[in-house]
Amino acid sequence: MNIFRLAGDMTHLISILVLLLKIYATKSCSGISLKTQELYALVFLTRYLDLLTDFISIYNTVMKLVFIGSSLAIVWCMRRHRVVRRSYDKELDTFRHYFLIAATFALAVLVYEKFTFREILWAFSIYLEAVAILPQLVMLQRSGNVDNLTGKYVFFLGAYRAFYILNWIYRYFTEARFTRWIACVSGLVQTALYADFFYYYFISWKNNAKLKLPA
C-alpha cells in the first residue's frame, strides 16, 4: 500500500468520524442528507460482498466492517433515533436518489469487468459511489449556510477522492498491470463533483470566514 492510498483511506475514515461526532455531540443531523447516507450504505453493502469469500488483509477486512457498520449506524440514527431524527431537514433533502440507483445499476449491467453477479454489483457500487454525494451537495446548496462540522465532513470526503486519484497515478507507474478503468474513470467523475465545493471551501478558509455557498 502506498502513502496516497493510506492518506485516502484515513481521510475517508476521518470524514465518517467527523459526521459521527457531529451527530453525537450536537444530537443533530441538520444539514446532512439522509439520501446520500443511504446510498453510501448501499455502496458498501454491495461492494464488500467479498468479505464473505476473499481475504486480503486484516486492515482491509477491518476497514470494510467499519465502513459498513458506520454507514448503517448513521442511517439508523437519522431515521430512528428519538432525538436526532427530529433535526433532519427533510424538506431540503429532495433529490430523487432512486433515479441514481436505477441509472447506475443500468450502467453496471452494460459496463462491467466480468459478467458475474458479484462483478456487476461491484461495478454498480463504484458507479453509485461516484454520484452518491449529489443529494448532499444539492442540500448544502439549498441551505446556503453550512455548519462547521458538515463542511469538514464534505471536505474530508473530497480529500479522500483526491488522494485515491494520486494513488492510481502512483500505481499506474509502479505496478505492471494496474488497469482498473471502471474505478479510475468513476473516481475522476466523483472528484470533479467536489470541485465547486472545494472552490468555496478554500475561499472561506482563506478569508477566515464561515463557509457559504451561492444560492
Binding site: 492510498r5 483511506d9 476473499d54 482491509n60 465502513f67 469487468e113 498491470r177 494496474f178
Partner: peptide, 10 residues
C-alpha cells in the same frame, strides 16, 4: 488468459 488483479482497494 488475462487475469484481473485482486480488488484490494476499499
Amino acid at each position: 488468459c488475462l487475469q484481473t488483479p485482486p480488488k484490494d482497494e476499499l
